[in-house]
């Protein structure tokens, strides 16, 4: 192929000016890759065409630039850093781009203020919610603690009752019922006496609450004489008393706190024989 003749045929100009048909376009785009001189001829003509147009530029009407930027304002992406365009230059023939930028900044600022206000409101709202939640939580913790204390208390009581039940069911246990003596008929108490170990347990089923400074004292009647069998303390279920090797009867009197060496017979409440 005579490449110079090809270049001089006017095909280069047809191609650049957009007058070539599809077949011609395909051919020249192939040839420009193979022959640098074809490519160079294309570039040369492009450049002279560009220069010709630049040299003969016709300033557009003043409002065009502004309208165009208005129309495309939403399509510009933020750029950082902004490339400044010399204002002296743009000021002469063209409308400055300031209005568009300041307008878009106003929108941005307005949006930022709205977001900030929203954020502050949410902070206040959620702080209030947090405060309430924190105090609710405290209340729940307190309630849980008191429930736990109650549960512990009941568990302790239950354990004592449990062991009391076990003791009472023991077949070696002798049960001595002590009804109220004349004048104290409404009262009753029971002694559980282990016939093997000789341990004594008292179940104060029905005795009036002693006045302050007073305490119930259990006596074992051994060969007609009262023997101290211990003070009735603050226990649930069965109260373990002193070990009594043998006795014929048990009785309870109300004595001063800490007990007396001998029973006050006028304050005798209940009594039962074995």
């Amino acid at each position: 192929m005579d490449i110079q003749a090809y270049i001089q045929s006017g095909i280069v100009e047809s191609y650049v000016l957009g007058l070539a048909n599809a077949e011609e376009i395909a051919e020249i785009e192939q040839l420009r890759l193979e022959y640098p001189e074809v490519n160079q001829a294309i570039l040369d003509f492009e450049l002279s065409l560009e220069k010709q147009a630049m040299d003969n530029a016709v300033s557009p009407l003043a409002g065009v630039r502004e309208k165009l930027f208005d129309r495309l304002s939403s399509e510009f992406e933020a750029e950082a850093p902004v490339v400044p365009i010399n204002e002296e230059i743009t000021a002469t023939p063209v409308i400055p781009i300031q209005p568009q930028t300041s307008r878009s900044w106003k929108w941005v600022a307005a949006a930022a203020i709205i977001l900030l206000a929203g954020s502050i409101w949410m902070n206040i709202y959620y702080y209030g919610r947090y405060q309430k939640t924190a105090s609710d939580y405290q209340a729940l913790v307190t309630e849980r603690n008191s429930l736990q204390a109650n549960t512990d208390l009941y568990q302790t009581k239950l354990r004592e009752m449990d062991s009391s039940l076990l003791l009472m069911q023991n077949p070696v246990m002798a049960v001595i019922k002590m009804p109220g003596v004349p004048g104290k008929e409404g009262n009753t108490a029971t002694v559980y006496w282990n016939t093997q170990t000789k341990d004594v347990y008292l179940l104060a089923a029905k005795l009036p609450t002693p006045e302050t400074g007073k305490q119930y004292q259990l006596w074992a009647i051994v060969d007609g004489k009262p023997v101290d069998a211990g003070m009735m303390g603050n226990c649930n279920g069965l109260c373990k008393m002193k070990n009594i090797p043998h006795a014929q009867a048990f009785a309870i009197t109300l004595e001063k706190e800490g007990g007396s060496p001998s029973p006050t017979l006028s304050a005798l409440y209940v009594m039962g024989k074995i």
């Binding site: 930027f69 510009f76 992406e77 750029e79 902004v82």
Partner: peptide, 9 residues
């Protein structure tokens, strides 16, 4: 990159 300054230029 959709830069406004490029479009202005």
């Amino acid at each position: 990159a959709r830069h406004q300054s490029a479009f202005a230029y």
